[in-house]
Amino acid sequence: MTTALITGATSGIGAAFARRLATEGHNLVLVARDVERLREQATELHDRHRVEAEVLKADLASDHGIEAVEKRLSDRMHPVDLLVNNAGFGQKGAFLDVPVEDELVMLKVHCEAVLRLTTAAVAGMRTRGRGGVVNVASTAAFVPRGTYGASKAWVVQFTQGVARDVRQYGLRLMALCPGFVRTEFHERAGMGTDNIPGWMWLDADKVVTAALADLARGRTISIPDPRYKALMGAAKLAPRGLLGGITSKAGRKYGPVHPDGV
């Protein structure tokens, strides 16, 4: 059996990855901050799918948390064959409404943690000649959306660059860029979602199915829905000034607030 490590595994896209990979017979390393919830999830997946589900408590906003996951990824006796960097969060409000300390935490989780964990995973994968990394970004990467969009744009560019460098070793890297996904994320953050059009919502399990199919095809970017592919195509043609104004207002109105989702 192969092993997949998933950060932000307790809800949303991370939990959907855990369910799907367990169904396919992969052992799991589940990473998040809520250890009790992790244990419940691990027990359920083990009992239902007869896979090993390891629990690793880690806060990726801290060096200690990142180091703990790096250590697990570097364990050559128990190798990880697929890394899913899913942990993340957003800030609601205009740029000047958000404390710079919170913006720096976002960069640590979205950029530094992704960089360090990808590096730790790829080092062992290169030696074994196989493996993959899915870095969960967002369609916000393609539009002007402040620090959140900029950090997700970094994830996309970083992933594509590394994918080219490690392809020769038999490794695959992909940035997953979904739009609005139906999870408990917004409810946990205390956000209303009634004014988000119904057609914009995606199902987390379908997002993961599309993502794994794109990874198998060797794609370096996955936008897992035709509607969002069309929207991103239109965004490329729109004037940047106009697009910036629209996405800034949408971000303040709809944007995510606090961790473990994307």
Rank of each mutant, 00 (worst) to 15 (best):
Ala120Asp: 11
Val122Asn: 02
Lys229His: 06
Pro79Arg: 05
Ile13Asn: 05
Gly261Trp: 10
Arg227Asp: 08
Gly25Cys: 07
Glu101Tyr: 04
Leu202Cys: 05
His64Trp: 02
Val257Ser: 12
Ala150Lys: 10
Phe17Asn: 09
Ser151Leu: 03
Leu45Gly: 01
Asp97Met: 12
Leu215Pro: 01
Glu54Phe: 00
Ala61Gly: 14
Ala211Ile: 10
Phe17Met: 03
Arg172Tyr: 10
His258Lys: 15
Asp194Thr: 15
Ala189Gln: 11
Val207His: 04
Gln160Met: 14
Gly218Glu: 01
Val109Met: 05
Gln157Ile: 07
Val155Thr: 09
Leu237Ile: 12
Ser151Met: 03
Leu231Phe: 11
Ser74His: 04
Val55Lys: 01
Ser74Cys: 06
Asn85Met: 11
Leu73Pro: 00
Ser62Gly: 09
Gly261Glu: 09
Asp203Gln: 11
His26Asp: 01
Gly244Pro: 07
Gly65Glu: 03
Gly192Asn: 12
Tyr228Ile: 07
Gly90Pro: 02
Ser248Leu: 13
Gln157Arg: 15
Lys236Glu: 15
Ala238Gly: 05
Lys71Met: 09
Ala4Cys: 03
Phe17Val: 07
Ala234Phe: 09
Ala204Thr: 08
Gly198His: 11
Tyr148Asn: 06
Arg76Leu: 14
Ala230Asp: 08
Asn135Trp: 02
Gln168Gly: 14
Asp214Tyr: 09
Leu82Thr: 04
Glu52Gln: 11
Val105Thr: 13
Ala15Met: 08
Tyr228Cys: 08
Val69Pro: 01
Asp47Ser: 11
Ala61Lys: 06
Cys177Arg: 07
Met106Cys: 07
Pro259Ser: 11
Arg33Ser: 02
Glu103Ala: 13
Ala113Ser: 14
Ser11Cys: 07
Asn27Gly: 09
Ala230Glu: 10
